[in-house]
Each structure stands twice: as structure tokens, then as C-alpha cells.
């Protein structure tokens, strides 16, 4: 069967982190990222501590360096964009290896890089230890509007179906001698993207019919929610609480 793209984010494991209820993990990850963002950029030691915590959690969950590193690739566009800051920002200049760089630009670059990397690392740890259906259940448990989680569920469910259609279309094109090499050869791809849009639209109609046939009347039923025990909440939220303590210390020591 088609190997799912979405599922590539999850790594099967037996760690305690995998076994936690999703709502506690999602809430903790959210609060943790907030703490990272709220940290003053001058507090290098604070960012070091966050990195230490996240790397520790990833190692504990058995995510592996390669697993994490390959999933960090999505950050590259942001890295490239932030590298421009020291060159384009104004203000005081410093000379590094004979090149004039903006001091505030360097700070901005560091700020974006550090916070984006830590934020991404947090989401990799979360997604790596939480299966997609559980993620949706967790969001349900956190009282995210059902409409939003339902839309997310549909997107995830049909991403593979639509990608599968695109793949088959591409195989069919190549089987009839299409061998794209240049940008000028992209036309059939554009046409197939259009075809896929129309097909997806029609599929949406059919899915709706199937839903209506099973009694759908405008409201998605909520999934059964397993409430997390208070001890688990406390244990898991201790991590972002600690991060917020670091934030407080960092501002205080400025």
C-alpha cells in the first residue's frame, strides 16, 4: 500500500513519552514553545537549557539523530531567510572577516534561528511520539472546535489518496512517453494538478453523500475522550513549567 507521508512523522516506540495521553503532550508542547518565544534573545544559557531538555526527551523516546535531522530539513528556507538579516538590517556595524555586518541584524538572525529550531524540535518530539489519530483525539480533548479537528482529519485522510492519484497520473504520463526535463515540460503537470483539483472536488461530493447516508446532519460526532489523570497532567506540565521558570530567570538576570 501507499506509504503515507503523514505517517513518516511518527516513530513507533514503547517509551513513556509514547504512552502519555495526547492532550497532555500537546498542551505541554504548546506552553513550551511559548516559553521559548518569550525568552530574551540575549539569554544564551536559556536556549542551551531548552535544547538540552528537548534533545534529552528525543533521546529518551528513541527518536534517533537521523530521524530528527531529516525532519529538521523543513527549516532550511527560514535559515536562508534569516541569514540575510545581518546584511540588510541597519544600525551599528561590526566587521567580521572583513565584511561589514549589522549588529541588530545579527541579533535578529540568532533570535529567529534559535527560536525556530527549538520550536521545530518540540514539534518533532511531539509528532514523533504521538500517532496522528491520537493527535486529533488530543485536540478534541483540549476542546479545540470539532469543525477544526474534523477538517484536519479529512486533510490527513485524503492527502495520501490525492497524492496516490497524482502518482498514478504521473506514471500514466511517463508510460505514454512524457519525459520532463525542462520547465517548459511542466505543462502536463499543471494540467494534471487541475484534473486532480476537479477529481478531489467530485470526491468531496461523494464523501458527503456517504456521510449523509450514515446519518450526518451537520455535526461531526466527538470521539470518546479518555480524561488524563491529574498526576499525568502535573508530570507532563512540569516540563513547560520549568521552561517558564527559565524565562523568568532570564528576564530577571538581564
Amino acid at each position: 500500500m501507499a506509504g503515507g507521508h503523514v505517517h513518516a512523522l511518527y516513530r513507533h516506540g514503547e517509551s513513556a513519552l509514547h504512552g502519555l495521553l495526547p492532550q497532555t503532550k500537546i498542551a505541554a508542547a504548546f506552553l513550551f514553545v511559548f516559553a521559548v518565544v518569550a525568552t530574551p534573545r540575549e539569554a544564551f544559557w536559556a536556549f542551551g537549557s531548552y535544547a538540552f531538555i528537548l534533545i534529552g526527551l528525543a533521546a529518551y523516546a528513541g527518536l534517533g539523530i537521523k530521524f530528527v535531522a531529516t525532519r529538521m530539513i523543513v527549516e532550511i528556507p527560514f535559515v536562508i531567510a534569516s541569514l540575510a538579516f545581518p546584511f540588510i538590517a541597519g544600525g551599528d556595524k561590526v566587521t567580521v572577516l572583513g565584511i561589514q555586518l549589522s549588529q541588530s541584524g545579527l541579533w535578529d538572525m540568532w533570535n529567529v534561528l534559535a527560536k525556530a529550531t527549538l520550536g521545530l524540535l518540540t514539534s518533532i518530539v511531539l509528532a514523533g511520539t504521538t500517532e496522528i489519530p491520537n493527535m486529533l483525539k488530543g485536540l478534541d480533548a483540549l476542546r479545540v472546535p470539532r469543525v477544526i479537528t474534523a477538517i484536519m482529519g479529512f486533510m490527513i485522510r485524503y492527502l495520501d489518496v490525492v497524492l496516490g492519484e497524482f502518482r498514478r497520473m504521473r506514471v500514466a504520463m511517463r508510460s505514454r512517453g512524457h519525459d520532463p526535463k525542462w520547465l517548459g515540460h511542466a505543462r502536463p503537470y499543471a494540467a494534471s494538478a487541475g484534473a486532480i483539483f476537479v477529481r478531489s472536488y467530485e470526491r468531496g461530493e461523494r464523501v458527503y453523500l456517504a456521510m449523509a447516508s450514515r446519518g450526518y446532519a451537520g455535526h461531526m460526532p466527538r470521539s470518546t475522550i479518555e480524561p488524563a489523570p491529574a498526576t499525568q497532567w502535573l508530570g507532563v506540565l512540569a516540563v513547560p513549567m520549568f521552561a517558564w521558570l527559565i524565562v523568568a530567570l532570564a528576564w530577571w538576570s538581564l
Binding site: 496522528i132 489519530p133 485522510r157 470526491r203 461523494r206 464523501v207 456517504a210 456521510m211 450526518y216 446532519a217
Partner: peptide
């Protein structure tokens, strides 16, 4: 319906089979 991909829209098999009865 003919295409099971149209019919199975929930994230897991269990959630999908629950869909109708929950609506009831």
C-alpha cells in the same frame, strides 16, 4: 458506495465504524 475511499473518512477504522451509530 463503490469506492471505499469515499466512505472511509475518519482517522481510524474504529472511528469510522462509530460514525453512523454516533449520529444515531
Amino acid at each position: 458506495f463503490q469506492d471505499p475511499d469515499d466512505q472511509l473518512f475518519m482517522p481510524t477504522v474504529r472511528a469510522d465504524v462509530e460514525f453512523g451509530p454516533r449520529n444515531l
